[in-house]
Design a protein around this nucleic acid. Structure first.
Length: 232
DNA sequence: GCCAACGTTGGC
DNA sequence: GCCAACGTTGGC
């Protein structure tokens, strides 16, 4: 079974890279069989899955952490200090996150989320200034996100360029968002399906316009809900 | 540092 | 194609 179904890797027009399954192209037949099917996500919550998104949340780590000798730190301040306050969003190695990036359009906005840090949360707003193109780091053996299975003539991973727009007027912590999410689940509020909680590990996530605007409206409020955060 | 959640791998 | 084992993410 494994050998018999081998994918025609020589065919130029396979055109299968789009759904994120084809991890495999050359690696031998064993994997080739399996991967394609998985790509389409089982209907998760059916309605949410179909819409076209215009708003995003992108995670990055603001604190130093070494990975294969390279510092992963890239917080919103680091973006701000780039030339043009613009940077490429490289290193995404998850098919769903990649596919979301591929659907991003110039001018769309995203929250810059700080993850894996003291106080995770949303720090600011960025926008897409270059639509998906090849993430060069996948071909660099010295890069922590090097992917030896990705071939030059059919790259697996993409990235976009983002530009800093502004900081939020106040930092909106994960803890605060979580409380609202919990509440909204019972009240049918705007954050009831927020991907940050329903798809926790995705590093690039879509938001509905409603979700985006609601979260933005929070920056105007005084945050009275955050007693639990001070005992850290 | 721990570990739950969940995506990926690969044998069958 | 199923599913157990494995690896990674990221909150705590």
């Amino acid at each position: 079974m494994r050998q018999s179904k081998r994918k025609r890797v020589t065919s130029p027009a396979a055109g299968n890279d789009e759904h994120g399954g084809d991890a495999v192209a050359e690696q031998g037949a064993k994997k080739a069989v399996r991967t394609r099917k998985k790509v389409t996500v089982p209907p998760r919550s059916a309605d949410v899955q179909k819409e076209e998104y215009h708003c995003w949340l992108m995670k990055s780590e603001p604190e130093s952490r070494m990975e294969k000798g390279m510092d992963m730190k890239f917080g919103i301040e680091d973006l701000k200090s780039q030339p043009n306050q613009t940077a490429c969003w490289d290193g995404v190695r998850n098919y769903q996150a990649r596919n979301f990036m591929r659907s991003m359009k110039n001018g769309q906005k995203a929250f810059f989320y700080h993850s894996n840090c003291k106080e995770p949360g949303i720090a600011g707003i960025i926008k897409i200034v270059k639509e998906a193109y090849t993430d060069h780091t996948q071909f660099d053996p010295k890069n922590p996100h090097y992917d030896s299975s990705s071939k030059n003539d059919n790259p697996k991973w993409s990235m976009v360029d983002v530009q800093f727009i502004r900081m939020l007027k106040r930092y909106i912590s994960l803890a605060e968002l979580k409380k609202l999410h919990q509440k909204h689940k019972t009240t049918d509020g705007p954050l009831r399906n927020l991907a940050l909680f329903t798809r926790a590990r995705l590093s690039v996530q879509p938001l509905t316009q409603d979700e985006f605007e609601y979260i933005l409206s929070l920056e105007e409020e005084k945050n009275t809900e955050e007693e639990s955060e001070d005992d850290a």
